[in-house]
Design a protein around this nucleic acid. Structure first.
Lengths: 226, 226
DNA sequence: TCTTTCTTCTGAACATGTTCAAATACTCAA
DNA sequence: TTGAGTATTTGAACATGTTCAGAAGAAAGA
């Protein structure tokens, strides 16, 4: 059985956590690349092999961190969704929250974005990470669902995925943003978000109906059938 | 002296080529990951260390391939620029030509796109690859230069870089496009290109002047001062 | 309690990218 | 031609992610 699909045994879960915690601590201290699996195992008081019993690879540790973050953040994201009414507030809230949460581990996120190849199991676009991705997308789905966005039914279903993609792009920029306190990302977020919302508003006017068809074709090409 | 900035000594250039050729042959045959530096060196009739004398790393071999491709393609790209009059024809020509050229090595390009981190010397966005990138961008510069695109002077200078970025995105999609003969990329290219040209046309009308300011701000955030 | 089976853990072994000190080949001034 | 200096080449050594056969431990049945 691959480590990913481990059943949550009573005590082994603790060992797993111990290894993950040790890994994160070392990652934060020395950076992902400089950290070695031997170090991590030692810091967790285990042998090298034990680390690999629980995690398929070094990168899998980072993915585990992401999954953990996703769980820990869920409550906050829920609250943001219920507390805020407009789509803008919700998007600002969701994405802002994530950036804030991941802030202390910003460099670590670089290790995740390293896998662009959608065939790699740890890529954000892979089949293997579909459950994680879908959980993320679901929040954007809910951000959209009772908002006043006027899009044709042939396009609307793609919106959550597009918003997710937007968020991914923004976070990629953020990870490598070297401006002080990542101020550039802040500006970028601000400007692109309001631009996007403007486009969504304008998309409702009948004048732009002729664009629906090509837009839908484009989306179908990228994502396949809705 | 790092292998990248090697002076073109008379005979050593041949050795370098031999190693590069052996590498490419093995990459194409067995794939980038499966190929080992020992294999490559052996195939070139050299010892392992010799390969590292000429190339800083395994990835550097792929980058060398890209540089070589850039040189070999220059003539064709020139011709496309002079032969075609409209911006659309030129962009279709330039990008189409690259896709055609890289076609037989499509999988190999995946090794290049692996480095998203702009701090990594082999990233398409790094300072180290600026000369290569600038050469690429110059073609888009020339594609734009005497076209009838009506953009304000505060935005126009960014256009070549944006077109380059568009091309990079398209090629990334293409590298991992699993549809037969990469038909999806073809469709995507078609649709996004005409969409983009439409936007460029519409951008000229005075009605959209209020968008100039925010657009410029956005570009400044991403690229810095023009 | 003894045996069997499953889970967890160990550490040696492996593969491979990379480095490096030293050997060899080459160039060129004297 | 010769010797000094430089360029090239070698192969062993290293670091580290990963694998794996088997040891140790825990659980369950008899």
């Amino acid at each position: 059985m691959t480590a990913m699909e481990q059943q949550l045994t009573p005590k082994s879960e603790a060992t797993r956590s111990r290894i993950l915690a040790a890994a994160l601590s070392i990652f934060r201290e020395r950076g992902f690349d400089a950290a070695t699996m031997r170090e991590i195992a030692a810091a967790a008081g285990m042998s090298l092999g034990a680390a690999y019993y629980y995690f398929d690879s070094k990168d899998a540790l980072v993915m585990a961190f992401y999954v953990q973050a996703q769980q820990e953040m869920a409550k906050d994201l829920e609250r943001i969704l219920t507390d805020s009414g407009t789509l803008e507030q919700r998007l600002r809230g969701l994405i802002g929250q994530k950036l804030a949460y991941f802030g202390p581990n910003r460099a670590l996120m670089g290790a995740l974005s390293a896998h662009i190849d959608p065939n790699h199991p740890l890529s954000p676009f892979s089949a293997a990470t579909a459950p994680i991705r879908d959980r993320d997308i679901a929040f954007f789905q809910r951000a959209v669902i009772d908002s006043k966005v006027k899009l044709p039914p042939s396009i609307l279903p793609y919106l959550p995925r597009l918003l997710w993609l937007y968020q991914m792009g923004l976070m990629l920029f953020w990870v490598y943003d070297r401006s002080p306190k990542q101020a550039h990302t802040g500006l970028l977020f601000d400007k692109t978000l309001s631009m996007m919302l403007l486009v969504l508003k304008l998309a409702g006017i009948p004048l732009l109906k002729p664009l629906y068809r090509p837009a839908r074709e484009l989306l179908k090409t990228i994502y396949g059938e809705a």
